[in-house]
């Protein structure tokens, strides 16, 4: 829904434009436009469901490949009620949350240091450029070999994948901090460390939050992928993989896949809402 991967610079420039007294946040979508956007989304989903239902009911597609949409929905409701599925959701969400938190805990301080110090940035640049293009999935065999198939293995892979958006957004956020704002704080006698804490980090926070939101999607993708192909302890990916392997349950596979999508959507909506709630001063306009 919130496909707001707009250039971060553009957001920044908008926020710099002084808004005339009384006008409030310029260009902010009102409640009604947001609601009508939600309605359009719902209509789109319903239309897709109708098309899927139609093509299977008239026999255009074999139900072995694609069960009718209503069957999938019914199966999904059943699956949600199953305890093994609920445990799988919990396991996936815990891996996702822990992985994201770890990524942030590593990437934000590192990003602040690399953003503030040209020397350290140049020194680490080559290492970062070397590591970054490695697809995290390609590391699965290595990490399993070293760490086994538990939560640690999942976390290492999630952190490796989710680190980058947070790290690079933090670096550019710190670069973007206004020299005048830092100078102001220094002129009031704040120490360099206090300036980092009171000015640099809050000022870069919207960039960092955008990085965390991007990383959250990546983290979920990696968690599910690892569960699917590496068969970690448990999780929604494992659930779907087992439904496929054991008993050829097409509907369950579809239902599980659909529910993974729902979890992803919910996570995205929550992250987007949190970003708007806390950084409204920065993103005065969201598309």
């Amino acid at each position: 829904m919130t496909s707001d991967v707009q250039p971060v610079d553009a957001q920044r420039r908008l926020s710099r434009r002084p808004t005339p007294e009384g006008e409030g946040r310029g260009g902010r979508p009102t409640r009604t436009t947001r609601r009508s956007r939600l309605w359009r989304g719902v209509v789109g989903v319903l239309a897709l469901g109708l098309v899927l239902e139609f093509v299977t009911r008239i026999g255009l597609v074999s139900p072995t490949f694609l069960p009718p949409f209503t069957t999938i929905l019914g199966e999904a409701v059943d699956v949600v009620g199953r305890q093994d599925f609920q445990e799988a959701v919990l396991s996936t969400v815990v891996s996702w949350g822990a992985g994201l938190a770890l990524s942030a805990a590593v990437a934000i301080p590192l990003g602040v240091v690399l953003g503030l110090s040209q020397v350290s940035y140049r020194a680490t640049r080559a290492v970062l450029d070397l590591l970054r293009p490695i697809p995290p999935i390609a590391l699965i065999p290595l990490v399993i070999l070293v760490m086994g198939q538990g939560l640690e293995m999942k976390l290492v892979l999630v952190v490796f994948a989710a680190l980058w958006p947070i790290l690079f957004n933090t670096i550019s956020g710190v670069h973007d901090v206004d020299v005048k704002a830092k100078e102001m704080a220094r002129s009031f006698g704040f120490s360099r460390l206090a300036v980092i804490r009171r000015v640099v980090v809050p000022s870069a926070a919207p960039f960092i939050a955008t990085g965390v939101r991007l990383s959250s999607s990546i983290a979920l993708i990696v968690v599910i992928t690892v569960e699917l192909i590496a068969g970690g302890a448990s999780g929604m990916g494992t659930f779907v993989a087992e439904a496929r392997a054991v008993g050829n349950q097409t509907e369950v596979v579809y239902a599980g896949t659909l529910l993974i999508g729902v979890v992803g959507l919910v996570i995205n909506l929550l992250m987007g809402a949190a970003e708007r709630r806390f950084f409204g001063w920065h993103t005065t306009k969201d598309v």
């Binding site: 002084p18 704002a181 926070a205 001063w281």
Partner: peptide, 9 residues
């Protein structure tokens, strides 16, 4: 530069 020396958050 008041707009830059005030903290927008």
């Amino acid at each position: 530069d008041y707009s830059r020396s005030l903290l927008p958050w």
